[in-house]
Simulated scan of single mutants.
Amino acid sequence: MLAIISAVLFFIAFLINAADISTNDTFSSTNVMLIGLALLALHVAGIGAGWSARGRRR
């Protein structure tokens, strides 16, 4: 789930950068991209991955 959100944020950052949309300092394309990278790092670390298969074995 976090990987999908980060992909959407990367796309938004691309649109902001490609269209030269003037935004305030909080929503610049670099900041949106860094939030996307943080979410992608959390996904790779295993946070937000969903259900774990550990408890399902018998």
Score class of each variant (00 low, 15 high):
23 T>G: 05
53 A>I: 11
22 S>L: 02
50 G>M: 03
28 S>R: 03
21 I>F: 00
52 S>E: 15
55 G>V: 11
50 G>N: 05
39 L>P: 05
28 S>N: 08
35 I>G: 07
34 L>F: 11
20 D>N: 04
33 M>W: 06
42 L>E: 12
48 G>I: 08
44 V>Q: 15
34 L>C: 10
22 S>W: 01
54 R>L: 12
37 L>T: 06
50 G>P: 03
21 I>K: 01
51 W>I: 11
46 G>I: 04
44 V>W: 12
46 G>N: 01
50 G>A: 05
55 G>A: 07
24 N>R: 10
20 D>V: 00
34 L>W: 15
27 F>P: 04
43 H>L: 08
44 V>Y: 13
42 L>D: 05
55 G>P: 05
31 N>Q: 04
55 G>N: 09
26 T>P: 04
42 L>I: 06
35 I>T: 13
39 L>T: 05
32 V>M: 03
52 S>N: 15
55 G>E: 13
24 N>M: 11
41 A>Y: 05
29 S>T: 00
33 M>Q: 06
43 H>E: 07
28 S>E: 03
46 G>L: 05
41 A>D: 15
33 M>K: 07
54 R>H: 12
32 V>G: 01
27 F>Y: 15
19 A>G: 11
47 I>P: 02
21 I>P: 00
51 W>E: 08
24 N>W: 09
38 A>D: 06
55 G>H: 11
45 A>C: 09
36 G>Q: 01
26 T>W: 12
46 G>T: 03
55 G>W: 08
43 H>T: 11
31 N>F: 01
53 A>P: 09
20 D>R: 00
38 A>N: 06
32 V>D: 01
32 V>K: 00
27 F>R: 11
49 A>L: 13
54 R>S: 14
40 L>A: 15
41 A>F: 08
44 V>R: 14
46 G>E: 02
18 A>T: 07
41 A>Q: 12
43 H>F: 13
18 A>I: 02
20 D>K: 00
20 D>C: 00
47 I>T: 06
43 H>S: 10
22 S>I: 07
26 T>R: 09
37 L>C: 14
41 A>L: 10
29 S>L: 02
23 T>P: 04
23 T>N: 06
54 R>A: 14
20 D>F: 00
47 I>V: 13
32 V>N: 02
50 G>W: 11
47 I>L: 12
34 L>T: 11
53 A>F: 10
28 S>K: 02
29 S>A: 09
41 A>I: 15
34 L>N: 15
52 S>M: 15
49 A>G: 13
30 T>P: 10
38 A>P: 04
24 N>A: 14
19 A>K: 01
49 A>P: 12
51 W>T: 09
33 M>E: 13
27 F>H: 15
18 A>W: 03
35 I>M: 12
25 D>F: 15
35 I>D: 06
33 M>L: 10
49 A>W: 10
37 L>I: 12
45 A>D: 04
28 S>C: 03
53 A>W: 14
28 S>I: 02
32 V>R: 00
32 V>H: 00
36 G>P: 01
26 T>Q: 11
34 L>G: 08
40 L>H: 13
19 A>F: 05
35 I>P: 06
48 G>L: 10
18 A>P: 01
51 W>S: 14
45 A>N: 11
39 L>C: 09
23 T>K: 02
18 A>K: 04
21 I>L: 02
31 N>C: 03
38 A>E: 06
